[in-house]
Computed example of a mutant assay.
Amino acid sequence: MQQKKLSPENVYKASRILDLGERASLADIKNRYRKLIKSWHPDKCNDKPEQCREKTKEITWAYEIIVSYCNNYLYSFKKDDIVNNLPVDIQMKERWKKQFMDGHFSL
């Protein structure tokens, strides 16, 4: 299971898992989460229940990260906004921005 740390990489990964655009309202986020959870629920996956369990864990992780981010910051998932909205010291923000914008992280 992935860590629930609020970092630019995790927020971005979570927004991709939930398939959010560059901006989403809280209602959009909740609806997307519910739709994905319903479609990947282990009771509906008779052929690969273990894969469905892992996917629902991943979706739940992503939802928790996004809700935590949105409760404290903005509803924008553009790379620049994610890096600029998280409250960190200037040096860390610059390091994150360089790594994040240059694509030195994996989804």
Rank of each mutant, 00 (worst) to 15 (best):
Q99P: 03
S68I: 09
I82N: 07
F105R: 06
F105M: 08
F100M: 10
L86F: 03
I65A: 01
Y33E: 02
Y73G: 05
V11M: 05
K98T: 09
S15R: 06
E58H: 02
K79V: 08
C70H: 01
F77P: 01
N71C: 09
E54V: 07
Y73R: 02
W61R: 06
Y75D: 14
R23A: 14
E94H: 11
E50I: 14
I66V: 13
G103Q: 11
I17M: 00
R32M: 09
R53V: 08
K30H: 08
R53S: 10
R16D: 07
N10P: 06
K57N: 11
S76Y: 09
R53Y: 12
I66K: 02
S76E: 08
E58D: 10
E9P: 07
D81T: 14
L36T: 00
H104M: 12
P49M: 15
N85H: 11
D28Q: 12
V11I: 10
L20E: 04
F100T: 05
K30P: 06
D47T: 13
F105S: 09
N10I: 01
Y12I: 04
I65H: 02
K78C: 05
N10C: 01
D47Q: 15
E22S: 12
N71E: 14
N85W: 00
E22F: 13
K97S: 11
D89L: 02
T56R: 04
M101N: 09
S7C: 07
D89Q: 03
I29N: 03
D43T: 15
I65R: 02
W96A: 00
R53I: 11
R34M: 14
E22T: 09
M101P: 03
P87Q: 11
I65Q: 01
L86N: 02
W96E: 10
P42L: 12
N10S: 05
N85G: 11
C45P: 03
R32L: 03
N84T: 09
K97V: 03
N84L: 03
M101Q: 13
R95C: 10
H104T: 04
T60P: 02
W40K: 02
V83N: 04
R53A: 06
D80R: 06
R95L: 14
N85V: 01
E64I: 11
K38V: 11
E22I: 07
R16N: 07
N10W: 05
K5I: 14
R95S: 13
Y33F: 13
N31C: 01
Y69H: 02
D28F: 04
S76W: 06
L6I: 08
I59Y: 03
L36E: 06
H104Q: 13
R95T: 12
K30Y: 12
V88Q: 05
D81M: 12
Q2E: 15
M92E: 14
K35H: 10
S68K: 15
R16F: 00
R53K: 15
C52T: 10
L18N: 00
P42G: 08
L74A: 10
R34D: 11
D43A: 12
V67H: 09
M101A: 03
S76K: 09
Q2G: 06
Q51A: 15
Y69W: 08
C52M: 09
G21M: 07
S7K: 03
R95P: 01
V11R: 05
I29H: 09
K93R: 12
K78R: 15
N84Q: 12
K5Q: 15
T60R: 09
F100L: 05
L18E: 06
V88Y: 10
R95I: 14
K30R: 15
Y73P: 01
I29Y: 04
T60D: 11
C52I: 04
K97M: 07
